[in-house]
């Protein structure tokens, strides 16, 4: 009988010791104890933020940074438009386009 009581005491002590150890461990390593297994927000909050890495997938385009380069492109575009206009391939005047002519014919 007394041996049984001692065993119980031992068990109690062991539980207390392991519990204390666990708590101490959690305190030292900054863990969050959740012995009941409840749903906890900590699972989400402890995640590392990876947004910065995700946002840096596409490299920065240097050619779009340089105003000189952009100007050159714009000039090229305008000169091309000029050439087209001279050949009579520019944009039609209002009411002279394909769709507009069709619409007027219908009426």
């Amino acid at each position: 009988m007394s041996g049984g009581g001692g065993g119980r005491l031992k068990q109690l002590l062991a539980v207390a010791v392991t519990k204390g150890v666990e708590e101490a461990r959690a305190r030292i390593f900054g863990h969050v104890l959740n012995p009941t297994g409840l749903r906890s927000p900590h699972k989400i909050l402890r995640k590392k933020l990876f947004g910065e890495k995700v946002a840096q997938w596409y490299p920065h385009d240097i050619t779009k940074d340089d105003p000189l380069n952009i100007d050159r492109r714009e000039e090229k575009r305008l000169s091309k438009l000029e050439i087209l206009k001279r050949r009579g391939k520019g944009p039609p005047k209002k009411g002279q386009g394909k769709g507009a002519v069709k619409r007027n014919k219908g009426k």
Binding site: P41, H42, K43, I44, L45, L49, G51, A55
Partner: peptide, 16 residues
């Protein structure tokens, strides 16, 4: 996604 990451995590945690 980067801009709202923190907010999203916070709301999610509060919901959970």
């Amino acid at each position: 996604a980067e801009k709202f990451e923190l907010k999203r995590n916070l709301y999610k945690a509060l919901v959970r």
